[in-house]
């Protein structure tokens, strides 16, 4: 799923099966993606994907590859600092970001622009006004 979505690097995931697709992509990122990406999201988004059972996911840890924040503002600060670190020479794997834009689409878009040229895959729950949208269907 993530290979398919890798270009362009940000996409809205909309439609009746969006949540199922996002959960499958989240699992893929942490379990089977050989790039061993860092995965970043909020507890709210994790609860959306896992129907309120985020604590069961967070408890696992994933060798510090999973970063779950309470607020979008914290995610944005983390991502900006990480982009600065990468630009100053620090090695980092692919970063996969799960978010729900809603009223925060402009802030999220600024963060994506901050990551221009760096290795970020951003997957957004719902319609994404600043880029492409996909409507996944189950096989």
């Amino acid at each position: 799923l993530l290979r398919d979505i890798a270009r362009p690097v940000h996409s809205g995931i909309a439609g009746a099966f969006a949540n199922d697709w996002l959960r499958a992509a989240f699992v893929e990122a942490l379990v089977s993606d050989e790039r061993l990406p860092d995965v970043i999201t909020t507890r709210h988004d994790l609860d959306l994907m896992f129907c309120g059972q985020s604590s069961q996911v967070i408890a696992h840890g994933f060798n510090e590859r999973l970063h779950v924040f309470e607020a979008l503002e914290e995610v944005v600060e983390h991502l900006e600092a990480k982009a600065d670190d990468i630009r100053s020479g620090q090695a980092a794997p692919t970063t996969v970001w799960f978010a729900t834009p809603g009223d925060d689409a402009d802030v999220i878009h600024q963060t994506i622009e901050y990551w221009a040229g760096l290795d970020l895959i951003a997957l957004f729950h719902g319609n994404w006004s600043h880029g492409p949208n996909r409507h996944p269907q189950p096989a």
């Binding site: 799923l1 099966f17 199922d20 697709w21 959960r23 499958a24 989240f26 699992v27 942490l30 379990v31 896992f50 129907c51 059972q53 069961q56 996911v57 696992h60 994933f62 996944p136 269907q137 189950p138 096989a139």
Partner: peptide
């Protein structure tokens, strides 16, 4: 197209990893 997966199965996959 993708294969849908119940939440419980997703959690099990994550916890097995």
């Amino acid at each position: 197209l993708f294969t849908t997966q119940p939440v419980s199965e997703s959690i099990a996959l994550l916890q097995q990893s």
